[in-house]
Design a protein around this nucleic acid. Structure first.
Lengths: 205, 205, 205, 205
DNA sequence: TATGAATGAGAGTTCATTCAT
DNA sequence: AATGAATGAACTCTCATTCAT
């Protein structure tokens, strides 16, 4: 036993974390689909069978990882006060804060974001149910906001189309930042510019 | 041999196409990762070993399929006359045509677009080199256009940022159309709206 | 500890019984081969490792269960008074009582009988030694009785053959009753008929 | 390659037989439940994956083996002319022939009979469906015959009970002969005695 | 060229058993 | 004595790839 602590002395929780940590690492390196449970467990000092003491299968450990990120996002989205969208200023302000927070959260969980962003969904395999559902949630929220803004006369564009453009754009930006490591610059300024582009673009034609 | 033509009489090229055709079908049905070479060859009247006479592995056949689409896109992008971007009208016109053509091409090769859009990339496996390179190409073209427009004073936004937003938005739209099957409506009108949003959004702040 | 008695206060004997009880239940539900030690211990409030404090392996607990039944049968068979077989009446009477008692005992331990009757034997694994030995014992007793009856001139058939027929027939009947749940009717009457068939069949040719 | 013939030169059918042969051997030695596919394939000079080219799983190879025997039995049972049961002589004659043929068939396929007889059924696992169904078939045939004999006044006993007794007895006899290897003697004579016992036993009370 | 049977590495999973606590 | 986390061997099954024909 080469560890300082013997395995018995590590708590179950610690081991669970160790496996999650290993999975996170391997998923980033090899992608979800190419990762085998052996790959994950090989990164730890545990035995193969031990994996199944903590997780049912690859899907479950992926879900758990992704939840960290999704819950953080969802938490913030739920705090959005959709009533505070009376004026153009409100909308700008609200969107800037939301986008900023979204980026912050993604950067904070950048490893998981990395995995999610480099794993596509669309084929109806077991695994992308969750990602799809989460994307749909974000889409719904965006649509509600934009529809409201259109009703108030603040924006003038198809809310559904706009939501797709915005979500797609954001995903690409974050992908470049996190996966491609192409981020440099002042995030605050960038956020302001992004919001401005979409808002100005969607205003009265 | 119940075929009208015996296998011997089919040209090599015909067999190659038959396999490509089969692969396209199965990739869409089961997704790239869940597709085995057996799945592909089962859709043909050829034998398993024959696959390897025409393609090295699954990777290679995927590359070849994807090339059909990429070459079509590249061909058009190369025809873009970047000098015809003097006025705002020019830009609008040019972009509308380009976007329209892009969508047309993707819809024409929608099967392959489907596969590309629902297949992971981002992990540095051999295979996504190609997708990445193609994306990069599109990105470069977009950046050049937007940079030029900024220089001419037509647009006023960070060309790099704008390119990412536009590409991301387009990808999402096409994903919704093709993979999710959520397209209904007048594509021409939609294209005009998309271009308008980005252009208005990126004009003088 | 939510139990009225803490585990410490339960006697070893109680725990042993608890495990046996659980094993009996699971063996019936899933069959001997499909039952894992985890399955057994899951039915108790004990820990997995505890099993091995009481039993060496699945085999041993099975043996012990089966003993309950075998000892009950053996006990009665040993009480048979083989001297009381002078007349045909004696024989009839004795057999009826014996068969009746055998059936009673099997019905009383029907759970274990169920397990025994639906568990393979015949392969020379360790475990069916016991079943075989017990069957042999019954066979010997039957043979002795029938041989005696032949010597007295009451029966006229090969005692060995007759023993096999009788034992096989009984096993089948009990199998139908217990495992298939096909018993309905008046057991006493049935027993009388069974005995009659064998006795009449085996009388002077 | 130590074989005289290379593997390519052996026909598929030969290899299929080789695997069946190996399975038959191992099933007898270890019993169905304790036999793994590795055990079977280890007896051949083939690779593990090859098994699955010929059989879906252990169940399927077992079914195939057992079919050899069951079809042989069924074939003969179907030839039974149930109309030729008018007189006591007819019945005796018919039964003697049937029993004799049954024994012949079982002895001819004694290896498979061995497997079937040492593998119980009763637990509703996948595997014993077939055995159970076959037993049921024999039971039905026996019941029909005995019921008819009762209607004609030739026999006087409960046909169901009698069928169980007869089938159980026969199974036990064959088990002793084949599995225990306890057969000596004149099978013809034995058959005559068995039939006599059951017939006399079941005649008018 | 074309075939397709054979291969064997490797995936996922289960489970009896051990042993530090 | 009792625990239950950890182990790793063993099992079923899949599949890309090879190669004799």
């Amino acid at each position: 036993m080469e560890n300082a602590l013997s395995k018995r002395e590590q708590s179950k929780e610690e081991k669970r974390k160790k496996i999650l940590q290993a999975a996170r690492k391997v998923f980033i390196e090899k992608g979800y689909h190419s990762t085998s449970i052996s790959d994950i467990i090989r990164q730890t000092d545990l035995a193969r069978g031990t994996f199944y003491l903590y997780f049912r299968d690859k899907q479950e450990i992926f879900d758990e990882l992704v939840n960290e990120l999704f819950q953080a996002i969802t938490r913030h989205v739920n705090m959005l006060d959709l009533d505070k969208l009376e004026s153009e200023q409100d909308l700008y302000h609200n969107l800037e804060i939301t986008v900023q927070h979204l980026f912050d959260t993604l950067m904070k969980h950048r490893e998981i974001a990395h995995i999610v962003l480099s794993t596509p969904f669309g084929t109806d395999s077991d695994f992308d149910k969750k990602i799809e559902a989460h994307h749909e949630m974000l889409f719904q929220v965006a649509t509600v906001i934009f529809r409201k803004a259109v009703e108030k006369g603040i924006l003038n564009a198809d809310p559904v189309l706009l939501s797709h453009l915005v979500l797609g754009g954001m995903k690409e930006i974050v992908f470049q930042w996190i996966v491609k490591g192409r981020y440099e610059g002042d995030m605050k300024k960038e956020v302001r510019e992004i919001v401005r582009i979409y808002m100005k673009g969607a205003q009265n034609r």
